[in-house]
Design a protein around this nucleic acid. Structure first.
Lengths: 263, 263
DNA sequence: CGCCTTCTTGAGGGTTCTCAAAGTGGGTGG
DNA sequence: CCACCCACTTTGAGAACCCTCAAGAAGGCG
């Protein structure tokens, strides 16, 4: 833990305000939220044990909410990029057996369940905003469900690249044609319900068709509409997320890689 | 459309009250909600076109929220049984491309998006309750996601039978060992991300091992713990739903089939 | 430079799909 | 009451997609 997270709270307040139209009073309340900034290393679980009881606002990096099954099987149910709130659903409908882990070195603002539900109780507009965020995440989960159930590996991966491209672009982290997705192929496999071996092959297939080129963790999309067509991607479900303004320029500098750092 | 849905609103208010601890004031507000009771036939879409704009409280029957893809592929993202609110997430985070259809002849109370968000705005406890319901549904979706990604057909189907057994039992519609799941194998296929052919074979496999016997649409589970073990079923994610009291006896009569009818 | 993680490549096998056809059951009309 | 029809379920055979296992190559970091 380090810092008070003032910048992070500002960014959280800005995000909710632009997406859900909050007033100055709610903004003030959000800025007064008690929370601590936590840095966590790649591939480690955040606050193992009581991670369920906390809500994490992603400042930098990439978080994954995953469930571990017997036999080493693992399934990721959501990815959270900077600006996202992770664990909202579990804050109001607790369930165990889920872990939150960082895909790369990440920086999060950790909020207690009580702080989040408390501020929602006192400020109806904030409750509405957080409810909306929960529903937005649910929409993304539903879309992933469709992919796992009815798309083959190629279009499933293509769909994920479309989604993450748009989300990262909306967050001010690169463009849909060029962004950094800081996830190993093993993590992608756990997102897509595949093996890492097959993710590797599928990635090469996409490259072979010129749909998406992955170099390291940078994704290059030469012809975005074509990728979207291959993925049967319909961005409608992301609309509320894309409505978000980019974070204020004073706070972020977008580098060539599309990776953001705090100013 | 038929009736004012007074009984339905009472049941909705009771459900939310027992699950989320609402007071008399909120209960009164819920009972004053404007809505209409709609009967809809099996395998038909509810309010096609503007179905997105409505929230449906299930009185009787079984609803499915599904997405249609090219080539006749279809994926169901959620099943709603009596007592459930369908479409809450889309009410606060609209997205298109999803249909709500009835798996069997069903009776629903149809509420406008505005009525739902409006009552939530005026009554913070109701907002909190509806947020909780949204999060509960999101938890179920996440659990399905894990199944589609990491379970084979047999345990996936077993898991669904465990879940629906518990949910129907909590709703007062049969017991986990004996309940009616009013879905065709084609619908189950769209829930499980399989083909109806494979659902048929998998159902026979479960029967062969004595895990679950489907006769018509009645499911018989001789040894529930064994089925739960085979499915790696952990009911934790349903906890908020199972906390619900059974509907008042005056309203419901549970028949031998586990199917409920209005008194 | 060497280690460790990650990615790639190959070969064989298993789960599930596709296509096709036959069987079952409930409802309706003659 | 029977015949018909429709939706649903079952069965079979072959193919496709993805997995498993295993080993080697590449990349990052001390």
């Amino acid at each position: 833990m380090q810092g008070t997270g003032k910048f992070a709270l500002e960014r959280l307040a800005d995000g909710l305000a632009t997406r859900h139209g909050l007033g100055a009073r709610e903004r003030q309340a959000l800025l007064a939220l008690p929370g601590s900034v936590v840095r966590c290393r790649a591939a480690t679980e955040i606050a193992p044990g009581d991670g369920d009881a906390r809500v994490h606002f992603v400042i930098e990096g990439l978080l994954a909410s995953a469930r571990q099954l017997a036999g080493g099987r693992r399934q990721v149910s959501a990815l959270y990029i900077p600006g996202d709130l992770c664990g909202l659903d579990r804050a109001v409908a607790p369930r165990r057996g889920w872990e939150v882990c960082a895909s790369c070195d990440s920086l999060v603002l950790s909020l207690s369940r009580q702080a989040v539900t408390g501020i929602a109780q006192e400020h109806p507009p904030i409750a509405r905003a957080l409810w909306g965020e929960t529903a937005l995440q649910a929409g993304i989960t539903a879309e992933w469900l469709v992919g796992l159930g009815r798309r083959d590996a190629k279009s499933r991966l293509a769909h994920l690249l479309c989604e993450m491209g748009l989300r990262l672009e909306a967050a001010g982290l690169g463009s849909r044609q060029h962004f950094r997705l800081d996830a190993s192929q093993a993590l992608l496999a756990d997102v897509l319900g595949l093996t890492s071996v097959h993710v590797s092959r599928t990635l090469q297939e996409l490259r072979g068709e010129g749909l998406a080129i992955a170099r390291g963790r940078i994704i290059e999309v030469p012809d975005w509409p074509r990728l979207a067509r291959a993925a049967e991607f319909e961005p409608d479900y992301l609309r509320p997320a894309l409505a978000a303004a980019s974070p204020p320029a004073a706070m972020m500098t977008v580098q060539g890689t599309g990776q953001a750092t705090l100013g």
